[in-house]
Amino acid sequence: MKIPTAIITMLFGVVITLASLWYGQNNGWMPIAASQEAPLVDGLFNTMMTIATGLFLLVEGAIVIAIFRFRQQPGDNTDGPAIEGNLPLEILWTGIPVVIVVGLSIYSFEVYNTMGGLDPMASGDRQVVQVAANPDAQISGLIPGDSQARPDRVAVGVGASPQTQGQPADVEVDVLGLQFAWIFTYPQSGVVSGELHVPADREVKLNIKAQDVLHAFWVPQFRLKQDAIPGRTVELRFKPQIPGTYPIVCAELCGSYHGAMRSQTIVEAPEDFDAWLQSQIAMTEAGENTVAMVPETLSKTDRLALRTADLGVDDRTLAQLHHTGHHH
């Protein structure tokens, strides 16, 4: 006896659904999630992977079946059936994608809002242009426009999540991208470093600027990225969670050594972070602030160190940066 088509179709549907659900959750394509924001993005990604896997199996499966089942039989030169369409079916496959994309839009909106993307302090774009201070300098600096003076300064980027809106972040770091390195300044203590140290489970706010061309600050494990744009300050606020050392990658083509523009971020327990900060302050007072430019773990970042040396990022540039930094 022949099994009815409806039952076979239903079985296919069940198998595709189960396979998609499993693969959506267990694809293992994402790196470790080390910030409070990362699991939200992963949840969204896994949902989209589930839907995508389902559609992939459905469509590619139909194509493969069609190739084997509906290929021309030898000697049969007739045409296929004259089916020109099927309105209910077409409405169905217009309607289902509409529901999917509306659902995904709402879900993405929620995730983005929870991450702080819609924080009015960070997501507006009341841009104030800054004008070059000394264009003849080796790396021309930017003097801040009056935006710095206004207390209600608004930047773009990802700000505080709705729960912490209006509260200052626990740690604030000024990030400067330049060809081809990142420089991190801790404004409260004046520490300058070539790698980013942040305490776990504390709100961190980065004020990102660019010295020369576009760069992009990206930590894959935080799932956060923001372009550094010459002439304006952008904000990136997040809460690192899992201690460890993660790469900081420049993700916007910024010149010949773009691929070598890498640094690292070290997420550590708050006490370790404080200890590190104290040691840096001590070193700064001893006039050795350039030491921080070459990380202790030379083996891992020697390429970066070499590059910064190549390109003349030395005490002089740093002094200059320090100079521009004093404006705020």
């Binding site: 993005v41 989209m48 469509v59 590619e60 993405s108 990225k225």
Partner: peptide
Amino acid sequence: VALFLIGGLSGVMLASVPFDIHVHDT
């Protein structure tokens, strides 16, 4: 059709802002 489908599916993912922030320029 088979190859374009994959590009289309990843395209929908990329439209989602929080996910795109992670994978943009990668």
